[in-house]
Design a protein around this nucleic acid. Sequence first.
DNA 1: GTAATTAACTTACTTTTGGTAAGTCAAAGG
DNA 2: CCTTTGACTTACCAAAAGTAAGTTAATTAC
Lengths: 121, 121
Amino acid sequence: MENNLEIFSHFEECPVRKVLNRFGDKWSILVLMVLGEVDNMRFNKLHKTIGDISQKMLTVTLRTLESDGLVKRTVFPEIPPRVEYEITDRGRSLLIHINNLVEWADENMESILESRAKFES
Amino acid sequence: MENNLEIFSHFEECPVRKVLNRFGDKWSILVLMVLGEVDNMRFNKLHKTIGDISQKMLTVTLRTLESDGLVKRTVFPEIPPRVEYEITDRGRSLLIHINNLVEWADENMESILESRAKFES
DNA sequence: GTAATTAACTTACTTTTGGTAAGTCAAAGG
DNA sequence: CCTTTGACTTACCAAAAGTAAGTTAATTAC
């Protein structure tokens, strides 16, 4: 204990944080979870499945996931256009950890919400 | 596959997301990681250890973590004030998963950054 | 007697993020 | 030739998050 605390100093510039920060946004984890449930999915199906995401944010989120190699985007040169998204192996390897976190949240949710309620009073 | 997709619809109202969203902010995970390394730490020591967090955000972050029962806050009624923060058992149980995620980020960081660079060109 | 110390809180301000609504594009169908 | 279709773009606006600087209190060290 009490060793190596310097690691945390100005963690902003730390590449690990650069990576982790990407999943702190509103939609990335959710989109990854949905794509983890299917072989692939088209844009509009994703849009309808999630329901309360805007087109713009779905586009932005998918682009980010794609740029990080977590999602693969396949365009079929047809009209009207068809674009399919699927999770990559890297995406799946991340999803495992995310699901562990979700499981934790699921198990602890109730007592956390109680804790919050108590705190506010 | 392709079953139970309704879970994701309007996930906004989902309590699991309510819990997970808390850790998507800029500082919560970092503060928890620091407190995971020591027995306890005072406010100013935390401030200096992290370096680039503002006082306000450190206060807000600590209050949130406290309200969720992840961090314990102990005030000593002295002047100048002394307040000690320590991670709780619940906080530790979360930290395990976070560390797994950090480990994943560490392992995949390089290829993700490459992936991003390639994507931008 | 005055400066420094500590952990806040407050205010005013700027930045970042996310949302809305409209428009684009190109071919096929009526 | 006008509408439909899917997957975006774009311009604009609102909300959330973050920053900087100032204020408070009683004791101690100068």
